[in-house]
């Protein structure tokens, strides 16, 4: 359904997204993880046709067989909402505070599908029920500030589903929410994707949330896709040093705080920070922070290679080993 081949996005000379290659089929539940600056949100914006104003796209981005990398805004309007739709991170910022949420949710139906207000209202009601908003009749008439954060996120999901998209992109949909609510929203997204046979792209910095919500995972670092594979496999046996570092740095609730001598255990860390766009390393972008760096890493960029049918990573260590 969606196919990316060597998709890159440049801001001036700097590649904020480099050679992303992946396919998304109907029913796929794909997680994209990475820290800030990894390019995960930019990737989502590319899929929505909302990146091309400021970024220069190269490579192939095909949706339903049409190459959209250089498509016009007009072409994108045909696809948005009906084929691809997005749930944004900040439910308060994504909803117009001066409009009743019902009107916001009905807008794409009126605009894209030419429904009458009565038909749109009926569909909005059933969508509110589907996403678990109680008293939908009354809720449709409310303003965003009258709702809780979780309810607002549900409204945004209903809005994204308004025109029955084939792909739903959720960008950090649970980051601003409390644990309880976040769990329920994650479950809701998963259930909706399954019931509607819709593809779901779940973007988050939170490994726990991605682990729960997705079947496959893509790990991004500084604009590069560094690892890809089935979520459970990647998290249980990460291949790329960055994925390993990310998992290690995440505190494990089962380990005692102090060792036998009563000294507090330190957490494993990844030294340094994600480099800014204008100061990216020449070769592997993780070089300089990588604990197992080879001499070639700083100068030469690793190729993304499959380790088995479902898994792959971009790391010199993996290709070195195979050459032996």
């Amino acid at each position: 359904m969606i196919e990316l081949a060597n998709l890159s996005a440049h801001f001036g000379d700097a590649a904020a997204l480099r050679d992303v290659t992946l396919t998304i089929q109907r029913g796929d539940q794909l997680g994209i993880v990475g820290e800030s600056g990894s390019g995960k949100t930019l990737l989502a914006l590319c899929l929505m046709g909302m990146a091309s104003d400021s970024a220069h796209l190269t490579g192939r981005l095909s949706i339903d067989g049409r190459d959209m990398a250089r498509a016009s805004e007009r072409d994108w309007q045909q696809l948005r909402s009906r084929r691809v739709a997005m749930v944004f991170q900040e439910p308060m910022a994504a909803l117009n505070p001066l409009r009743r949420v019902g009107d916001t949710v009905m807008e794409p139906m009126l605009l894209h599908e030419g429904l009458s207000r009565g038909e749109a209202r009926k569909r909005a009601l059933s969508l509110f029920e589907e996403v678990g908003i109680p008293n939908p009749d009354q809720r449709l008439r409310q303003f965003p500030h009258e709702m809780s954060g979780g309810q607002r996120q549900r409204v945004l999901i209903a809005l994204a589903l308004a025109c029955n998209p084939a792909l739903l992109i959720a960008d950090e949909p649970t980051t601003a929410l409390d644990a309880n609510v976040a769990l329920r929203i994650t479950d809701l997204l998963q259930r909706l994707a399954r019931e509607r046979e819709m593809a779901l792209v779940f973007i988050s910095h939170d490994l726990a949330a991605v682990a729960r919500a997705t079947d496959d995972i893509v790990v991004m670092y500084a604009g590069d896709m560094v690892e890809r594979g089935p979520t459970a496999e990647v998290l249980n046996a990460p291949a790329h040093p960055y994925t390993k570092g990310l998992l290690g740095a995440r505190p494990d609730p089962g380990v005692a705080v102090r060792d036998v001598k009563g000294k507090r255990r330190r957490l494993p860390t990844i030294p340094g920070a994600v480099p800014p766009l204008h100061a990216l390393p020449q070769g592997c972008r993780f070089s300089g922070r990588c604990p197992v760096e080879l001499p070639c890493c700083a100068a030469q960029r690793p190729v993304f290679s499959q380790t088995d049918q479902a898994r792959g990573a971009a790391c010199h260590l993996l290709t070195e080993r195979r050459d032996d």
Binding site: E35, S36, H205, A249, R250, R264, L267, T269, I270, A273
Partner: peptide, 18 residues
């Protein structure tokens, strides 16, 4: 903070405590 930075800061707090 991002996960990798979070671990650095937690370690720093523990160092300071010690």
């Amino acid at each position: 903070l991002d996960v990798s930075i979070q671990a650095q800061i937690l370690n720093l707090l523990m160092d300071l405590q010690d």
